[in-house]
Nucleic acid binder design. Sequence first.
DNA 1: GACCTCACTTGAACACGTTCAAAATCAAGC
DNA 2: GCTTGATTTTGAACGTGTTCAAGTGAGGTC
Lengths: 236, 236
Amino acid sequence: MSFEAESSDASARPSSKGERTRQRIIETALDMFAERGYDKTTMRAIAAEAGVSVGNAYYYFKSKEHLIQGFYEQATTRHAELTPQLLEGKQTLAERIEAALLAWLDIAGPYHAFAGQFFRNAADPASPLSPFSEESTESRDRDIALYREVLEGSKTKVPADMADILPEMLWLHQMVVVLYWVYDNSPGQEQSRELARRTAPLAARVVALSRLKILRPLVKQGEELVRDFLITRRPA
Amino acid sequence: MSFEAESSDASARPSSKGERTRQRIIETALDMFAERGYDKTTMRAIAAEAGVSVGNAYYYFKSKEHLIQGFYEQATTRHAELTPQLLEGKQTLAERIEAALLAWLDIAGPYHAFAGQFFRNAADPASPLSPFSEESTESRDRDIALYREVLEGSKTKVPADMADILPEMLWLHQMVVVLYWVYDNSPGQEQSRELARRTAPLAARVVALSRLKILRPLVKQGEELVRDFLITRRPA
DNA sequence: GACCTCACTTGAACACGTTCAAAATCAAGC
DNA sequence: GCTTGATTTTGAACGTGTTCAAGTGAGGTC
């Protein structure tokens, strides 16, 4: 239960010797993961390739899993960079959601081969890599903010009381697509793209319909549920 | 990529010497997992406690992870046994869903400590332990069938075309609760029980509302989506 | 009884992630 | 240049999951 954030003080001393060593290690690691997979890449091999000792790698990264965090950060950062330009000109909510989802699939595509191994570790709640963990807060919030942008740029009117939970819900939607993608072994993960395309307009329609009077109580309850269990009380 | 089903030929020769050894190992393992957690329980310790050699444990179970399958099977079996009697007298769909969910939480409760490890495996698409995998078909179908019973015993009318996908959807609902439970570190996992209680009537209401004319196209599309992506094309 | 077969069992050996005490290097003050 | 303390680096050693060549023994065949 330690709360040091070894891996996020990257900005502490920009290019001290230590910082350069750290970079060398993480880059070597990600390269090797992409090339021969997570399990097949040993810490000894990473250390050797990076020209340091095993112990030294552990001086900078608490565990092998912590090396993966680099991938997660890289992915969400690129997602945040790439999506806005894709959103330009797109007016409907459905189009915008679809664009955001497909952008993610594009970015993560090259890593699909070792995504399974990545997710295996991410799914462990005790792992610092879990998308719900403390350590992932930064990446996660960046991604949720992206969906706020998706919503705000569209013409669809959103019930006031739902406005601030919707980004989180769209992010959850993305997580579902990602989950499917991890399991997707169709060539080029085309099925996942298809899922994104078909699922986006549906999500948009749900948002639009949430204003119907008959659905009011249901929506209200759902909203409270998300607020109580996902946002305020989030465990771990 | 071998497809032997070592762990499911349990019924092959009911009480041969080997079968008894296998039982001894799995029982010892589950006991020890529940008592001191998955990671803290070494294969050497299991073997010693069961009175066999390490290699012998590996003769019956391909890996330490495969021992967990025993937990999954045991849990779904007990869930199927316990739930029906809890359903008696319960008429509304909400009550029935809640009963099924709470029953699951009761059964899984003692194993919460090592549930994270279990889920870590469930999340790996390549693992035979994934709830979506071939090897888990039996347990999963048993659980889905349970929800068919939940539905059929209630007074709520269900649109004909949705009747056969609804059990699968309620099972998915359960998986969401289970996911929350895995991450839940509140004392006694009380938050998960609360989630089940609040979520059950909501699910029931959604089922009921799905008959509304205005929602018809949305529901239809959703149904097709589930059918296309979850049932027929399920990957891996 | 000798021989064979094959399910079952053994435990030493291996590869890996991880730890740690100690060494080496560096930075700063004098 | 020397001292001192912090930072960085080392590699042997530990505990773990897993493998495997070799062994055991109960039953069948001649």
